[in-house]
Simulated assay, not measured.
Amino acid sequence: MGELLLIRHGETEWSRTGRHTGRTDLPLTAAGEHQALTLARPLAARRITHVLCSPLQRAVRTAELSLPRGKGVVLEPGLMEWDYGAYEGLTTDRIQQERPGWDLWRDGVPTGGPERPGETLEQVGERCDKVLARAVAALEQSGGDVALFAHGHVLRTLTARWLGRPPGDGGLYRLDTATLSTLGREHTRPVITGWNIPP
């Protein structure tokens, strides 16, 4: 069986400045587009049979720039980033001015009203479980690799769930922009086979 390839999108203005970017649909910066292009070489060395991608443009554009033309990309809403509610667009330092010691993985986010209701960590974990079920079915069917283009926090949560850990364990795995990580199995045990690898 192949591996799950986790690709975090390239740099955006908000990722560069450390602002929580959930559902705000930002484009890649020029540096982010360059980062995405540099992913093409390591991805070309893999036998990718399926591609699932967050519908947000920063992930879609990263997939477009790093995959060969004609590679079918399926938009997967379950790979959208965490809805940060009222904390959308804020940095951790800014949030901690009002909530000293605040930690996303432990404390979550408050609602931001009807347009940004926010999500609990458990809700993000449930989305990841559904994506994993679909991705594993594709792995078993094809024998090749399945690429997932998405965002930092959702991919970290997905990794925790792959390992059979609670969603909050995603906080243990740092994930930079435009990096490749791989999930596979050792015998039958789900494992991390590569992590946060720059192109």
Rank of each mutant, 00 (worst) to 15 (best):
H153P: 01
G164Q: 15
T157L: 02
A178E: 09
T157S: 05
H151A: 09
Y173S: 11
F149S: 09
G164C: 15
L172A: 11
T179H: 05
R174M: 06
P167G: 15
A178T: 13
A160E: 02
L163D: 05
G171M: 02
G171Q: 05
G152M: 06
F149Y: 14
D176V: 05
D176H: 12
H153M: 12
A160T: 01
L175I: 05
R156K: 14
A160F: 02
R174G: 11
G171N: 04
H151G: 06
A150E: 07
L158A: 14
A160G: 04
R156M: 12
T157N: 05
L163Q: 03
W162Q: 12
D169L: 01
G168I: 04
G164P: 14
T159K: 06
R165M: 15
P166N: 09
G152Y: 06
G170I: 12
A150V: 07
T179A: 09
V154C: 11
R161N: 00
L163K: 08
G152N: 03
P167C: 13
D169T: 04
G152E: 02
F149V: 08
A150Y: 06
G168W: 08
R174D: 09
T157M: 03
A150K: 07
L148A: 00
H151V: 09
T159C: 06
A178C: 10
D169C: 04
G168C: 08
L175A: 02
R161G: 00
L163C: 06
D169E: 11
D169H: 11
F149L: 10
Y173T: 11
V154W: 03
G170S: 15
F149T: 09
H153G: 13
V154S: 05
G164V: 15
V154N: 04
R165S: 13
L172K: 12
A160N: 01
T177W: 01
P166M: 11
T179K: 04
T179E: 04
H153L: 07
V154M: 07
L163Y: 06
T157C: 15
H153R: 13
T157P: 03
A178R: 10
G168F: 02
V154I: 13
A178S: 12
D169N: 02
R156D: 06
F149H: 10
Y173R: 13
L155N: 02
T177P: 00
T157I: 07
L148R: 00
T159I: 07
G170N: 14
G168P: 03
L158F: 14
W162G: 08
H153V: 14
A178Q: 09
T179I: 05
L148I: 00
G164A: 15
L175D: 02
L175V: 04
V154G: 02
R161M: 00
T177C: 03
L163T: 07
H153F: 13
A160V: 02
A178P: 07
R165I: 06
T159Q: 03
R174T: 12
W162I: 12
T159F: 07
R156N: 10
G171C: 04
W162V: 13
L172N: 11
P166H: 09
V154T: 13
L158Y: 14
R161D: 00
A160D: 01
Y173W: 15
L175P: 02
R161P: 00
A160I: 03
V154H: 05
T177I: 00
G164N: 15
